[in-house]
Design a protein around this nucleic acid. Structure first.
Lengths: 110, 110
DNA sequence: TCGCTACTTAGCAAGAGTGCTAAATTGCGA
DNA sequence: TCGCAATTTAGCACTCTTGCTAAGTAGCGA
């Protein structure tokens, strides 16, 4: 995993990959479910998912036969948002991001 | 000029172009001044500037011999910020404040 | 007009990205 | 273990991008 800022922006450069991120906004999806939403072939979508995973924008989790992908919103907001905050701070505000799973072990996860 | 959302993200995919935008944050710069900050040749930087101009991220203005480039922060914030607001609205906020004395930013997108 | 400076455009080579099909991998149930 | 479903990996062709150098365009002063 390379996981640099350039990886994030290069991942966002392709419309199919941006659409995948938007689709994942509603929750995790299997690779096949994602592929079925596009006209491209399964292997092609699989490679797009690999690019997103390399950039740290999605994570994968195995569920029996399938591989479920989910969005890493923090990663997207932190890298892209930081860039936007630097270049045009007048127009953009990066909201404070909670670290996932870092709060009290009781019931603090939302 | 194409000026779509994809043009913006593709323009941001190259580190040199992102650095140019950061350099322009401090105010307008001549093409030669920009080129002198990189190890790449003048024509190469000129093409990068063309990509940024096509994406609507910079504007140019002639001053005698030189061509002065300046950042279009609204364009950057609106296209990228809108995407971020859609995909991860919890982490990002697009500030809706109008800049002083400027007209409506005429959302021509997609 | 000539010559200088600033910048862009043109043309080419090398590399990276994207799409496909075919083959390999992984997991599970019979 | 066999077979099926889901997904990835491999290999190939095509296109786009990026870098360079060389040549063209634009403005200005003598």
């Amino acid at each position: 995993m390379t996981d640099t800022v350039s990886d994030v922006f290069e991942a966002l450069a392709h419309p199919t990959r941006r659409q995948i991120l938007q689709d994942l906004k509603g929750g995790e999806l299997a690779a096949g479910e994602i592929a079925s939403r596009f006209s491209a072939s399964g292997p092609t979508i699989s490679r797009h998912l690999g690019v997103l995973r390399n950039a740290g924008l999605v994570t994968e989790r195995r569920d029996a036969n399938r591989i479920l992908y989910s969005l890493v919103g923090d990663r997207l907001a932190l890298s892209v948002g930081d860039f936007l905050s630097t270049v045009c701070p007048e127009q953009i505000v990066l909201r404070t991001v909670r670290k996932r799973g870092s709060s009290a072990p009781s019931a603090a996860t939302s």
